[in-house]
Design a protein around this nucleic acid. Structure first.
Length: 305
DNA sequence: AAGGCGGTCAACCGCCGGGAT
DNA sequence: CATCCCGGCGGTTGACCGCCT
């Protein structure tokens, strides 16, 4: 059983707000305040869902909202905070007076993420894309093709040994999309194969992220000018690729810094491979031409035709 | 001129957490 | 403790607009 709808959808208007509706809502909120949104539509004489009223008010009608373009300083702050908090837009928006979470989210999705990508920074991890490709290239090992297979293997055939459940902080959810692929030999070759690396060992908890954000806002963060540089700064804020060093618990190293969970996790796996000699096996497998299809870059990565 | 296409952004949807009962 | 209700949040959608061919 799903939840009951928040309002009677049959009698509720949807779509863009008219100036008349805006005026009614504004008049009501200015005299009565916002109070209980579920009763606002009825009391304000609007055929709208309460949630719709709240959204319209907070994103558009609320006093002191900025409607002009984002400034360079705001851009840099968004990038920095996103590097630490992930897509927790309301938290980010709280640090930008006059901006709403919807504003920040839209601006990120349409402009900033693209800008970062063009600067060679992965907008999800805030690490240089080249680094990520190297990591993935070292990890994405594919099983030998079946005898009758064509030279093109589908990516989903990858075994996922470390795709274990973890308690991703909300801001880290997108990092679930990072596929960490390993070969079975890894687990067998490891003397500690009973233990597995887990994302959770490498993820910052919310408090830590929030604390760091506060440090940034307190002026302890020295940003690096342009967004491209700030992206690097984001990577810096999240720890360099070597900060995860020492590897994960399974291989006896220390746990990577919590503020760069994904990077530390990947680095720990690489470190573990080194200790167990699996990296040699991986290198041999990578050197085997039959694992690759064609010569395009995506094919070289073994991701299809 | 018209259709295709991509970018932008307001709005919706569904889930979640917290407070009230 | 369990359930309900509400507000808040993040992801997604779709309308609109301008540019290009």
């Amino acid at each position: 059983m799903g939840r009951l709808p928040c309002c009677d959808k049959a009698n509720v208007k949807k779509g863009p707000w008219t100036p008349e509706e805006d005026a009614k809502l504004l008049a009501f909120t200015s005299t009565h305040g916002t109070g209980s949104w579920t009763t606002v539509p009825q009391r304000a004489g609007l055929k709208r869902c309460g949630k719709s009223c709240r959204l319209r008010y907070t994103n558009y009608l609320r006093p002191n909202l900025k409607h002009e373009n984002f400034t360079q300083e705001e851009e840099e702050l968004i990038v920095t905070l996103h590097a630490m908090l992930g897509s927790r837009w309301s938290l980010i928006a709280n640090q930008l007076p006059g901006r709403t979470d919807n504003d920040v989210k839209n601006y990120w999705n349409t402009k900033l993420s693209k800008k970062l990508r063009q600067s060679g920074i992965d907008p999800i991890t805030h690490r240089p894309i080249a680094d990520l490709m190297n990591s993935i290239g070292a990890l994405a090992i594919r099983p030998p093709p079946p005898p009758n297979a064509t030279s093109c293997l589908p990516a989903p055939a990858l075994p996922l040994l470390h795709d274990a459940p973890y308690h991703a902080a909300p801001g880290m959810r997108q990092q679930q999309q990072v596929v960490v692929a390993r070969i079975d030999a890894d687990a067998r070759a490891s003397p500690d194969h009973g233990q597995q690396l887990k994302w959770s060992d490498f993820l910052a908890n919310d408090d830590a992220a929030a604390a760091e954000a506060q440090q940034v806002l307190a002026g302890q963060y020295h940003h690096h000018g342009a967004v491209a540089a700030t992206g690097g700064g984001g990577a810096q804020a999240a720890g360099s690729s070597s900060t995860g060093g020492g590897g994960g618990r399974a291989c006896g190293g220390g746990v990577g810094g919590g503020d760069d969970g994904a990077a530390a996790f990947i680095d720990a796996i690489l470190e573990c491979d080194k200790e167990t000699g699996v990296d040699q096996l991986i290198a041999e497998l990578l050197a085997e031409p039959s694992y690759y299809a064609g010569s395009s870059s995506s094919s070289e990565m073994g991701w299809g035709c």
